[in-house]
Simulated scan of single mutants.
Amino acid sequence: MTTWLTFLADQGANISDDAAPRIVSFGAEIPGETAKTNFVAPLTHLGLIAASGDDAANFLHNQLTNDVEHLGSNEARLAGYCSPKGRLLASFLYWQTADRIMLQLPRELQAGIQKRLQMFILRAKAKLVDVSEEYVMLGIAGPAAASALMPWFPTLPVAIYGKVDNEAGTVIRHSNAFEVPRYQWITTVEQAIEAWPHLTEILQASGADAWNLAEIDGGVPHITAATQEQFVPQMINFELLGGVNFKKGCYPGQEIVARSQYLGKLKRRMLHASVIATHVAPGTEIFSANDPDQPCGMVVNAERSGADISDCLVEIKLAATDAPVHLGSASGPLLSFQPLPYPLTDPAV
């Protein structure tokens, strides 16, 4: 067990025994309640790839769906990594430091994605390194988030995905969820251990579920092992979140992604739904009553939000929403659709 995980265990964290350990909880908090108030969640299920070298920005620019070459020092961005068929293999949050570009993605995907990217470096002056153990990532949210961070970051980023750096690390502003502000603090293990007592005086220590549930409320999808190669970026609203740049040069799958954008009306989108079910897995198919024999979509992400309720982001044929939609089969639990925090460009929704 790493120094950080050992420290968290001593603070009462319940840690999963997965290959990528996840902080399950600190006691009996309910994610659906915690996510709506003040909390700090260690994001140990996320990993970091550092890209360095003279050609690192150009290399990533030619691989990802978003602009890397013109990434500002005071911002982070979303990006996708697609197969040649335009289907997402991974989704990233990325930003630059003084000498590296950092790519954040689920740890369960990291090794495979890093290996695949490495295959295409060829003669480019670029190097990819797993730096997950060098950093701690903390999800911090709630009305008291700013005051909790003030000892280290007296000035916080205002714009969504705005970024501030100093000797204490990096803070990135995330979209509001449950009407409260959210930030991610990326720092060293030593700094996180030192800051933890102060943070938890103001914020409730929480498992990763609260942060993930907030991402769902914010309409921000994440590709997981179960959903690799299932979606063109627009099918999960990725371009609406700024994760696709249609003016940049080519990247794997670019022609298909562009064609999906400009040829006809988009027929599939990602929606927010709740369902009476406690264990909803990404990749679970959903079915419309109008066509019970064929799935009309798939769960992208899901987290339990109450004793017997889960919140989900689901990719779905828009036409299927005219009838009841069920989880797992045509006789499964009924999905109840909720508003997204941003408008869809398709007028049918």
Rank of each mutant, 00 (worst) to 15 (best):
Q234N: 10
E285F: 09
L203Y: 11
T188P: 10
V189Q: 13
A208R: 10
G207S: 04
A289Q: 13
G219P: 01
V244N: 06
A226F: 07
K247C: 03
A205M: 07
Q234W: 05
R268E: 04
E194F: 11
V189N: 09
E190F: 10
Q204M: 12
Q234H: 15
F178P: 05
P252H: 10
T284V: 01
E215C: 14
L266C: 04
V232D: 08
A195T: 09
R269E: 03
D291N: 15
D291V: 10
E201S: 15
W196M: 01
G297F: 00
H198E: 13
F287D: 01
T224S: 14
L213S: 04
I236T: 04
V280N: 13
F178M: 07
R259D: 06
T278G: 12
S260G: 10
E285I: 03
N301V: 02
G264Q: 07
L271V: 05
Q204K: 14
L241S: 01
F246E: 04
Y183W: 12
Q184A: 10
W185S: 01
E255C: 05
E239P: 01
N290T: 09
P252G: 08
L266A: 11
D217L: 06
I202N: 07
A307H: 14
A214D: 00
I186R: 13
W196A: 02
I202L: 14
E239L: 00
H279T: 14
L271D: 00
P295F: 00
K267R: 13
A258T: 09
V257A: 01
A302C: 04
S305H: 08
Q184P: 03
H222V: 13
M235R: 11
I186G: 02
I186A: 05
S305R: 11
I236G: 04
A205Q: 11
V280P: 11
D293I: 08
Q294S: 09
I276A: 10
W196E: 03
E215N: 15
I309H: 15
G243C: 07
V275D: 07
M235W: 11
N237A: 09
E285T: 13
G219A: 00
I223T: 06
G297A: 00
E239V: 00
I202D: 09
E190D: 15
D293G: 14
A302I: 01
C250A: 02
I193G: 06
C296M: 04
P233W: 00
R182S: 00
Q261R: 13
M270F: 10
H272A: 11
V180G: 07
